[in-house]
Design a binder for these strands. Structure first.
Lengths: 196, 196, 196, 196
DNA sequence: ACTCTCGGGACTTCCCGTTCAT
DNA sequence: ATGAACGGGAAGTCCCGAGAGT
């Protein structure tokens, strides 16, 4: 019985490795842009073992996305923790709309990396992903100023907007217009909240 | 030299048909989500004749996108023309962030339909697409209020933001949260410009 | 049931299915008259999986032909088995030159269905096909009367002749002249062997 | 050089040239094995002018076949003319089943070159071709011995048989078995008529 | 009579997701 | 956990028949 699975912990570690690789790869190349083979190879395994860990590619995507929101992209949320009290949101905005985030979509916000892909997916995937969007919001929600009722309404729009800006800035790349877009947007969103 | 175009009309008509079908299909299923075969079949042709009209799939995408910006999505820009003077931008915003636009990505804004796909594409495709983004901006640019220098800086951010909101609203679908996102965003952006 | 080797059996079954469909299709429409696509579709598969089973179309033709000679066209050779002793050859002749064989080239003798196609093919294909012709001869050889040395010489000529008659009778179709050709030929060949 | 005089004779000559090339090419490569382009190029013309002379490829095939029977393959029928009286049929048989005929299907009997191709064609083509078979028979008919009623019945079978033998001998090529087939068949058919 | 246009269709290569036997 | 098996499907190249314009 226990011969077959000598170390459940090891399996868990392997699983986690796959998840991390997948989260990165999906963001970098899109859901259909990576194959199970690539992900497994990058995880130091071969494709045959994949189905031992996950039911299918869709399940991997769901888990990897969940994982990326829960424990990944820490650098992004660290900007909140290391911010001076009262300026958490501004710091988050600055981090979100930073050139670093633009240039590293593979470790960044899922919305800005996979938004349109998910948008045209079937309902099941969209519903899964919706939960993640909510989870992301929960992380920044406490810092949105103003009455709670207002905050709740606005926070979603801000995140979506910033995801859009980031997405476009990636299209434009590190050009004059791309840089301008980013800096202007930083000011725009910061001001929006200063007023509120 | 005089150009010999024996059948300009027929070829052009066929080409246009393919282009229209492609623009729709790309937005609906993503660039890698449609095959040349499907597009041709929907155009009433077979895949064999494709390479007579376009060098390859990439060329088709480039042209179809160009075409979609230049002459497609008219319903979106009509919102500007039919708006009362001085309220063009508000009307555009309302149209852009309408449930109709959310539900019909196949005839809507390219940015909101293919943004993240293009964002991770190679530089060539991104540069092509950048030009289109600029072209889209040119269409709404005249209506952004405030000093020209400001307008120029802001218009890009607004469009990108709205694309992000629309993208997310498509993920959320026609749910309570999805609808709220859209209505809140409409107010948010309208107010932004009223103030300016 | 092949419980022991479920997997190899599956491949073999698929392969056999393709082979059967191909043998039929090649005879019916000619080697260049059928596409890999059609054959696969008729086999309940798609064209993509073809190259897993066969190197290319030429290989399929070679195998399908071999298969058709070895195990196909049983109805033709059954005429020998069910014949009264001593009259095997006559029965075979009657079956070969029957209206049924004329009307069903897709399950009949390869020589009469693809002879001229192969005749103008490159040497490789002709040599392959020659072996099949020899295999066909081996099946009727024991029943050709007279001294062995004579039999060996004649059997080939008879088969070739009958293939020619059948081929022409297919051109003529079920017309008066076509029917006469067949009946006359039956008598002609039967008598030839009665004398010998 | 000839001025652009619409000389009907020239057109006729061109037409004849195409016809001859086509008859050769069809026999050599099969009906679907040659393209209009090849035929025209070999005729010293380009593909565009083809439809000035013939309605379509099918019409060309019909005419070229007709032409080949009427005026082509003269070397075959010359064997009759140059034969000693009373031995016309034997000489024809020897010519028909000669290695030369085996090696030059492009100028030989249509039946032996295109038989199976036509056999699977649609009824229209088969009916056209049937007339040609009759025309061929008319050329050797006078020399078939015995009462007319018998002759009429037998001549068709002999020609068809010989076509089959020749076809198979082309598959076998210039090998031992191929040569034997031919010589044996020559004797077989000669004897058949000696008896009659 | 020629060149070019136009669309059809075949073959092959490549890659993907999944399953199976070991 | 591996690696092969298996089938699906896309992209692209090549060639064909037919027709239009000059």
């Amino acid at each position: 019985m226990s011969r077959k699975t000598p170390h459940p912990a090891k399996r868990e570690r392997t699983r986690q490795r796959i998840l991390d690789v997948a989260a990165t790869a999906f963001r970098k190349h899109g859901i259909d842009g990576v194959g199970v083979r690539d992900i497994m190879k990058q995880s130091g395994l071969t494709q045959g073992g994949f189905y031992f860990h996950f039911r299918d590619k869709e399940a991997l995507f769901a888990e990897a996305s969940r994982n990326a929101v829960a424990s990944g992209s820490e650098w992004l949320y660290d900007s909140i923790k290391s911010a001076p009290p009262g300026r958490e949101l501004q710091c988050f905005i600055d981090a979100y709309l930073s050139p670093a985030h633009r240039d590293h979509l593979e470790s960044g916000c899922l919305l800005s990396a996979l938004g349109t892909d998910v948008a045209r997916s079937d309902e099941a995937r969209r519903r899964e992903f919706s939960k993640l969007a909510a989870a992301i919001l929960d992380r920044i929600s406490p810092y949105v100023p103003g009455p709670d009722s207002d905050a709740r309404r606005r926070r979603a729009g801000v995140l979506a907007s910033m995801a859009g800006v980031l997405m476009v800035s990636r299209v434009l790349g590190d050009t004059e217009r791309g840089r301008t877009l980013l800096t202007e947007a930083r000011h725009f969103f910061s001001e929006s909240f200063q007023n509120a």
